[in-house]
């Protein structure tokens, strides 16, 4: 048997080492900091071990941030998928091929906008006096003020709508393209089997697309975790703490309000662990 060459290892090893350092060092450093009591205002620190984590659980603002994060995740993912599937199926059913291409082009534009730009555009659109999104309300009520971004009950949904506007429309294009790749015969067979158009999609096409749709959902779940820029521009976590997600709260604890870097790090570490566990469980469930 020929001796295995070590050449591949020689080529791969440096890259792997760099990648490992890049990914592992910050993570490990975050964990180390989370076990200390570092603050931005001084260089002195000591090891406090798990007291940051213990403090977190009695911090009502942290509990609120967890709840807001969960709400944000559920609302954006569900709404994106509903919009994507609804619009995708609608285009598939109603639009002629040429019109479909035009819609696809239009629907991809929002996601191409940088998040911060999209956030500013919509922040102005939601402006109570000049915004185009609030214009119908002013028109119907004869000039009453409606400010969705500064009402605790609507702020989260107003910000989420921007996320859905960007990703739901983009995913609608993907859903349409997925539907177009399906063989036409099962759809025709269903037509002959007395299925109505909506039943064809509910019972035949969408179940046939289950695997790619689930993958899309996972992509959106991961994407939804990175909502910091959008929320930061539109509400900065407000009004009050109504849109303060975990990353927003960690950022304000670490850099804005008190400079408690270790405390913020502890949150980041918790978030990482929770995300890894949740995604692993979901993935396993989907695979089964």
């Amino acid at each position: 048997m020929p001796r295995r060459s070590s050449l591949p290892v020689a080529f791969v090893a440096p890259t792997l080492v760099i990648l490992l350092i890049l990914s592992m060092v910050p993570t490990l450093y975050a964990i180390v900091i989370a076990l200390q009591n570092r603050e931005l205002s001084s260089t002195a620190y000591s090891w406090v071990w798990f007291s940051n984590f213990v403090d977190l659980f009695s911090d009502r603002r942290f509990v609120n941030a967890v709840w807001v994060s969960v709400k944000w995740e559920v609302v954006t993912v569900v709404a994106t998928m509903v919009v994507a599937i609804g619009l995708g199926v609608l285009m598939f059913e109603v639009a002629a091929p040429r019109l479909r291409n035009l819609y696809c082009l239009l629907f991809i534009v929002p996601v191409l906008l940088p998040r911060v730009s999209a956030a500013f555009v919509w922040k102005f659109a939601y402006h109570p006096l000049y915004g185009i999104a609030t214009y119908p309300y002013r028109l119907l009520t004869g000039g009453l003020i409606f400010d969705p971004l500064s009402k605790p009950s609507t702020a989260l949904f107003a910000v989420a709508s921007v996320d859905v506007w960007q990703w739901g429309l983009f995913f609608a294009v993907i859903v349409l393209k997925l539907l177009e790749t399906l063989p036409p015969q099962p759809i025709e067979a269903a037509l002959l089997d007395h299925a109505k158009r909506w039943q064809i999609h509910a019972y035949v096409t969408l179940p046939m697309l289950k695997a790619p749709l689930i993958s899309l959902m996972f992509v959106k779940m991961i994407e939804s975790l990175r909502s910091f820029d959008l929320i930061y521009v539109m509400t900065r976590g407000g009004p009050g703490v109504a849109t303060e997600t975990l990353d927003m709260y960690a950022f304000s604890q670490g850099f804005i309000e008190s400079g408690k870097v270790s405390y913020a790090s502890a949150m980041a570490v918790l978030m990482m662990i929770a995300t890894v566990i949740t995604f692993t469980m979901l993935w396993k469930r989907v695979q089964a």
Binding site: P183, Q185, P186, E188, A189, A190, L191, L192, D193, H194, A195, Y203, V204, P207, M208, K210
Partner: peptide, 19 residues
């Protein structure tokens, strides 16, 4: 509509519902 014509069809590639 196809469903209302009192016909049934067998396709070349079977066209079964795979799921």
């Amino acid at each position: 509509d196809p469903g209302d014509r009192g016909i049934a069809m067998v396709f070349q590639n079977y066209a079964l519902y795979p799921h």
